[in-house]
Design a protein around this nucleic acid. Structure first.
Lengths: 238, 238
DNA sequence: ACGGTAGGTGTACGCCGTACACCTGTCAAT
DNA sequence: ATTGACAGGTGTACGGCGTACACCTACCGT
């Protein structure tokens, strides 16, 4: 009876259900507290049950990344390469912002996952269709770096902390301690610059949409310039 | 007797000696096998002995990062902002290349360490001395992202694997499997482009010096253009 | 009716970080 | 010379981790 009830109560396990639960758990309590044991408990199952569906924890993480990357919008067809890529990257960013643990997880994988490769391949395809040489497209991909996936290095802000220990903090930003300003005057200066129309910026995180688009457009403009000039690889010095 | 000999044989522990041993261990066998136990063994000491000198493993990692970042050259005085920053970043890159585990370690820390902050502050100082507004300097720092520390996102190459599981692999690159080319044709194309004068690129890693400087100069040129045009923050739309 | 198999269970192992009590050698103050 | 504080290395132990392996069980095609 009880056993039957329990069996009926919970949906059968599946790789997909596991991955979705893992993403939810990482979103909720941070990637650091995502353990096979915690995940199994969330699913009402014993830890080893997971291993019938994923080979190990690394593969679980790969699967989680694929779930996320798969949510990025497909490329827009009827527009310029520049606009298509810009939109795509901003879509990637929107997706990744919902999963603050994802950037670090993506970076820490040894090999890119199939979904990531498919995404990158598609971006290169957009460049090629826009008339880029394979060579220039290659350099462009390197130039974009992680930005092509919608995130950039954020040394100051707390989205990284959010990714590690739970959801984004709701409280107001911590004030900048005075000895910080004394020790790092230039950082203090740019941190309090009135670019963001709020009073204290450090701790609140400055990699907001504006910063991201600023860098993205600077890169896209530079790339466009190279492309229009018919850039070709310089003669190798060696 | 024996005890005296042992005591004499090994230098006394110190925070500095621990940090240097930890860096050496991570360099040699990868960050993943850097455990308090392994490190203690390398130092000929019991694991808990380390805790008299570092608070915990996180602080150990912070200390290791500071050791590395402290090796970046100081800024050159008698030159333009652009040249000074370019040299500085390439110096940072040269340092980080010797420690493949460092990028991921730096990125995974919750807060920037004092040495990292000091470095960033100094870079901002160079910009300000070059006539940049605090506002533009702020955006420039965001634009640079992790490149200011000498590394960029490397989704393909194996330096990441090197950082995780030991020193850089000496063997030749693995050939690209044919089904890869079928599934990701654009990636296959740009991967085999003759920009690098060797036959197979995937697996050998393409974030070499050329790629890094390509992106760096693209950014610096774009920044210079903004600076010369007297860029100012646009009116905030809201 | 029955054997195979897919999938959930239970136990156990070795690794990790580190809390806590303990020991020991050194050195300043008596 | 004695003592006692203290810095620093030791030993033990705990809880958590990933996961190997043997098991059990419910279902399915024959």
């Amino acid at each position: 009876m009880v056993e039957q009830a329990e069996t009926l109560r919970r949906a059968p396990l599946s790789r997909d259900r596991i991955l979705r639960a893992a993403v939810a758990l990482a979103d909720g309590t941070g990637i650091e507290s995502l353990s096979m044991r915690n995940l199994a408990q969330d699913l009402g199952v014993v830890p080893m049950a997971l291993y019938k569906h994923v080979a190990n924890k690394d593969e679980l993480l790969d699967g989680m990344i694929d779930v996320i990357v798969g949510q990025i919008d497909p490329p827009e067809r009827d527009t310029t390469w520049k606009d298509a890529i810009r939109r795509r990257i901003l879509s990637a960013r929107a997706v990744l912002r919902r999963h603050p643990w994802a950037p670090l997880a993506i970076e820490s994988r040894t090999m890119a996952t199939p979904a990531v490769l498919a995404y990158l391949d598609s971006v290169v395809g957009t460049l090629r269709a826009g008339g880029f040489s394979a060579n220039l497209a290659h350099h462009v991909m390197h130039t974009m770096g992680s930005r092509v996936l919608g995130f950039s290095q954020e040394l100051f802000d707390d989205s990284r902390r959010a990714g590690r220990s739970g959801a984004a903090s709701p409280g107001p930003a911590a004030a900048m301690p005075p000895e910080f300003a004394a020790q790092f005057p230039h950082l203090a200066e740019i941190a309090t610059v009135a670019s963001h129309d709020d009073e204290s910026v450090v701790g609140q995180g400055c990699d907001d949409q504006f910063e991201f688009e600023f860098a993205l457009d600077l890169l896209l403009d530079g790339i466009e310039r190279l492309h229009e000039q018919g850039w070709a690889a310089p003669r190798r010095p060696r």
